[in-house]
Design a protein around this nucleic acid. Structure first.
Length: 684
DNA sequence: ACTAAGATAAACACAT
DNA sequence: AATGTGTTTATCTTAG
């Protein structure tokens, strides 16, 4: 599985070159991903086979020391193979990287040019900056833990082996041989397992390749612990002080491995692209490649982010520059657009990405801690989601999607202030994965209809969606509805809807043609969206009844619902979500601030059932089963259109719509229904 | 296998 | 003519 995701990573890199097509890449993910996975597995398998064979052949009389040596050799071989695969699979000519830099930013791109074939360890040392190394080493800590485990296991095995050897002196020779063989095989298996695990981790970008670790489990730990203070030396290409040359080499290898890791991990966790999309004040997205970024800074006369304390802060440079002008000159000469600079930028991207992932994880942890220590035991957000689900997994939508949401305008009052907003990078409901994946999120799922309402989901995560380039797990229809309902008068022009999308979701700041088309398509397609002519043009409103109609009405007590919810949500969240779902299913706009009109609403309630469907369990207006926030149900659809000229037909047929806030429904959804349905035939 | 719903793409018409 | 808006059709994917 890890292998697969890694391969998808690799595969998806090129697909990102064309922004529009990036989402469609998911379709063939299984196929080609499988292929790539097979390839990599084959590589690993080859190594393993060799190891097993070799071990079986010679282990009859291998001493532990020999065995260790052999294992080290094997590990190295495997590592080399891995690197070669990485290189051959990813590398692309370095000469075009300048042209590709833009696309490289758009999508987590393979750091093709960072393949070990093209960068020597020394280069890597130059490329990486101390913080970069630190970040990468941090990730290696995870591996260290694993290593520790393996090490213990192996030590145990060795112990057993020795014991057996001693005991075996009194045993027949064959028995000893067999047992030794068995143990050593076990040992080998263990090591292979470890190596494979290491490779998998590397492919996932979870850890950097530590040759010392890869080379031999028994010696792995000490070398893994590189003190951060040593990093500068590493950066300058110096080996650790007082170490023999081969250790310097190892450091070099280490760096190379790190680069390879960074390469492979590039796209694995689909986090927002290494270089984020910056949003200009006007809401237009701007994608800055690192290079452009730096060059843009060059234009600022007063300071430069890469210049500080009199020296160049370019990774691995530290050239002293007396003044900014000299620095600029230096920057233009030494760090011009070339393969090396590009590669360095890419590495930096990886570092940033890694840090983001780390941040996301830590934030999630913090959230869990805070949730545990105080407040909201019923947070609907499933923390239990795995941190690194396979990008294509559908768990995302299962958990978070909701097409039918009511909408408490959560945006206004983020209920989870304590836990939610900590980081914009926290992928709601699912750890750090599926960022930018787009694929799974777009699909509706069963829970889309049953589970957490879009409003609450948005309320809790709007900061996240606002900043992270993640496709929101809601359907276009639900988003459009949300946008419209958020407004005081429940109407929006198309352009305003666009603006809402871009304002609320970083994801919708790109590929505008695609999603705008989708928005228009949805507006036209769904009867729940009603176009109302206005003096200034046309506005779009929501016919709540129609909207509810399209939802499969089996909510209440439906075993499937419960099942869905249980599977999709953590138990703690179940209750709240269930309630929310129930509430929303019956009263779509309960919580909408604008909709709140304490006085008039009660009568409207019945309407909902009529339409929404018998199956829906009527929520008692008194809210015995519903949270307090669920105030009187309201149907929005009776939107009061501003200055509607002669469109009585369209929307106001039922008569004078009441005030904008609540009109609702008092009237006649039915009427409305009729109005809209009349022309058509679809009364169903 | 079938169907429904949604996403995406695209063609087209119409208005500004 | 270009652009925005709106409608419609087709195709694909996913889930039930």
């Amino acid at each position: 599985m890890m292998v697969e995701s890694a391969s998808e990573t690799i595969r998806s890199a090129p697909s990102g070159q064309n922004g529009v097509g990036s989402l469609s890449g998911q379709a063939d993910g299984g196929g080609s991903g499988g292929g790539a996975g097979a390839t990599s597995t084959a590589g690993g398998g080859a190594g393993r086979d060799t190891a097993a064979g070799g071990g079986a052949d010679s282990n009859g009389e291998l001493s532990p020391a020999e065995l260790l040596h052999f294992q080290q050799q094997q590990a190295l071989q495997v590592a080399r193979q891995f690197l070669l695969q990485q290189a051959s699979g990813l590398s692309s000519p370095g000469n075009n990287d300048s042209k590709q830099s833009a696309s490289a930013v758009q999508v987590p791109v393979s750091v093709a040019m960072m393949s070990p074939q093209m960068l020597t360890p020394q280069q890597m040392q130059q490329i990486l900056s101390p913080p970069q190394l630190q970040a990468l080493l941090q990730q290696q800590q995870a591996l260290m833990l694993q290593q520790e485990y393996y090490k213990k296991q192996q030590e145990q095995l060795h112990l057993q082996l020795l014991t057996q050897q001693q005991a075996g002196k009194q045993q027949p020779k064959e028995a000893l041989g067999n047992k030794q063989l068995a143990f050593q095989q076990q040992l080998l298996q263990m090591q292979q397992l470890q190596q494979q695990h290491l490779l998998n981790l590397q492919r996932q970008g979870l850890v950097g390749l530590q040759p010392s670790q890869a080379s031999g489990p028994l010696q792995s730990l000490p070398q893994a612990a590189v003190c951060p203070t040593d990093l500068p030396q590493l950066w300058k290409g110096e080996g650790a002080p007082g170490q023999p040359e081969d250790s310097v080499k190892q450091e070099g290898l280490d760096l190379t491995g790190t680069a390879a890791t960074a390469t492979s991990f590039t796209t694995t966790p689909k986090v927002s692209p290494p270089v984020s999309h910056h949003t200009l004040p006007n809401g237009q997205p701007t994608v800055l490649t690192p290079r452009r970024d730096s060059s843009s800074h060059e234009e600022t006369p007063s300071s430069h982010p890469l210049y500080g304390h009199g020296e160049c802060k370019w990774p691995g440079c530290e050239t002293l520059c007396e003044d900014l002008g000299q620095f600029i000159k230096h920057l233009n000469t030494e760090h011009a657009l070339d393969d090396r600079s590009t590669a360095q930028c890419r590495v930096q991207m990886q570092v940033v990405q890694q840090l983001e992932i780390q941040l996301a994880k830590e934030s999630e942890r913090l959230q869990a801690m805070m949730a545990h220590l105080h407040m909201r035991p019923s947070e609907p957000k499933p923390f239990s989601q795995p941190l690194n689900p396979v990008p294509g997994s559908s768990s995302f939508s299962k958990v978070a999607v909701s097409a039918a949401d009511s909408f408490p305008d959560g945006l206004a009052h983020p209920p989870t202030s304590a836990a939610a907003p900590v980081t914009p990078l926290r992928p709601p409901g699912l750890g750090s994965a599926s960022l930018h994946s787009g694929g799974p999120a777009r699909r509706r799922s069963s829970s889309d209809k049953f589970c957490s309402p879009i409003s609450s989901e948005l309320a809790q995560n709007h900061e996240f969606y606002k900043n992270a380039d993640v496709r929101p797990p809601f359907t276009y229809a639900s988003l459009i509805r949300q946008a419209i309902l958020e407004t005081p008068d429940r109407q929006l022009t198309l352009n305003e809807i666009y603006n809402w999308f871009t304002r609320m979701f970083a994801y919708f700041r790109r590929n505008t043609a695609t999603w705008k088309n989708a928005v228009r398509h949805n507006l036209s397609l769904h009867k729940c969206f009603v176009r109302v002519e206005n003096v200034k043009g046309a506005v779009w409103t929501v016919d709540e009844r129609e909207y509810q109609k399209r939802r499969p009405p089996k909510m209440t007590g439906s075993p499937t619902l419960v099942k869905n919810m249980i599977s999709g949500l953590s138990y703690g969240a179940l209750n709240a979500s269930y309630q929310a779902a129930l509430a929303e299913s019956s009263f779509p706009l309960l919580n909408s601030p604008g909709m709140l009109n304490p006085g008039s609403t009660s009568s409207l309630l019945p309407l909902s059932h009529e339409d929404v469907g018998a199956p829906v369990e009527p929520l008692p207006s008194n809210g015995s089963s519903s949270p307090p926030r669920l105030s009187p149900p309201q149907y929005s659809h009776q939107v009061q259109v501003k200055e509607e000229p002669a469109e009585v037909e369209e929307d106001g047929r039922p008569g004078p719509p009441l005030g904008p806030p609540n009109p609702s429904t008092a009237g006649p959804p039915e009427d409305r229904d009729l109005e809209e349905e009349l022309p058509g035939e679809e009364l169903s």
